[in-house]
Nucleic acid binder design. Sequence first.
DNA 1: CGAGAGGTTGAATGTACTCAAGCTGGGTGG
DNA 2: CCACCCAGCTTGAGTACATTCAACCTCTCG
Lengths: 241, 241
Amino acid sequence: MHSQETACETCAVRHRSVCGALSDDEIVRLNGIARFKHFQAGSVILRDHDQPDYFANVVTGVVKLTKTLTDGRQQIVGLQFPSDFLGRPFRSKSPYFAEAANDVTLCTFERGQFERLVKETPGIERRLFEHTLDELDAAQEWMVLLGRKSASEKIASFLLMVVKRSRLMGCTHASAGSETGRFDLPLSRSEIADYLGLTIETVSRQITGLKRQGVIHLDGTRTVIVPDVAKLEKLAEQEKE
Amino acid sequence: MHSQETACETCAVRHRSVCGALSDDEIVRLNGIARFKHFQAGSVILRDHDQPDYFANVVTGVVKLTKTLTDGRQQIVGLQFPSDFLGRPFRSKSPYFAEAANDVTLCTFERGQFERLVKETPGIERRLFEHTLDELDAAQEWMVLLGRKSASEKIASFLLMVVKRSRLMGCTHASAGSETGRFDLPLSRSEIADYLGLTIETVSRQITGLKRQGVIHLDGTRTVIVPDVAKLEKLAEQEKE
DNA sequence: CGAGAGGTTGAATGTACTCAAGCTGGGTGG
DNA sequence: CCACCCAGCTTGAGTACATTCAACCTCTCG
């Protein structure tokens, strides 16, 4: 892990991230306290119950947030994609463990400096609030998945979510009416299991099932091709309305 | 459901709710736009995908927030107790369906007026933000429960959560070292099932099990006595650390 | 007293889990 | 270059936990 200078003007996630709120001269100030940090897959970003010493935007890669029971059972309680914010403002202890799911680049802001900047720039706080609301929406949708969906619906919903988040960064193609997607899974089978409240074997079986049905194709074990996203949507059992 | 005047000075939840942020003269302004509304058990407070026309603090009773799949499966994604806030600021549509679990009193603020007040009183926005962070923490803890806990652990965790929330309003007694609790369940068996991702029969069996073990006593079907809270905690399988 | 909602209990079933073996592909060393 | 190793993944067989289906209980209300 090493740090380097940033350049907000050319930042790929600027408009989607909390920085989208800032005027040009505010960006200059932020630029002053921002540092890129790189993490390779699997490395720890934030220990639970620790006081984090920086906040961050995810620039590339995916960060997984996990909680663990005393006997070791794990649950992923959130995935942070590029443009998502990392860290709980106004909270001294992190409620979860944050880890790089694949290679990750963060745009970090030293805690004290960032908090000062937030105080002087009301637009940022509002933006942080909006991001927190998005996170809450995502968590509550996931509660429906965890509590009420079958294994196959869980897998379909998960793939769908990854398609949608990848699409934001431009990886899907609308071809002849039906949408097509091709993307890399940011998680291993066992991590998918921890995200969906399943075991690794069940995840594997369900993915194999979707492959047999022709709903997805696999290239290797991580790359997924979805010939018809609508078909996947039907299997995911969406929310009412 | 009917409305009536409020008196913030004597409000039981004032210091815990978002109003805790306000100075005396701000409270006077808020008092001007606040109206109590009563809902009897089972009545609809907020339809999903509707634009709500007011925000509210829960004053008494419990509000359940549910999401429903197209085929009717339900999941409760949140319970709002006295002092909790109801409504998503900066969002036009409610992501969930809100219903009075038991008889409920809300302290409501008409949408437009409240948004104006928030704009002029930065302390309120911060307070709303803090409440949203609490809600997010609760949601992510519940994800662990839904994804990774067994039926008996789920029931124990649920009872424990109700004990803790009831204790805040003063319903437990510390007697001779071990804590004792006596409280009414705000939910029916079938609602508990929808909160824990179980069926009503499983909920019933697990409660019977706890009763047989002597971990809880029942007075009627809704009133629970917990002779030793610590025993319940052991069965709930807490989070690490 | 009968009806009905909410709750409990029992028996059978099924979905996802556990345990175990086997496969695959990338990396290492002889 | 090939053999080997190992982690990650897949597949199979048997099991367990929660579900489903069904009957019955209990309390309240008309």
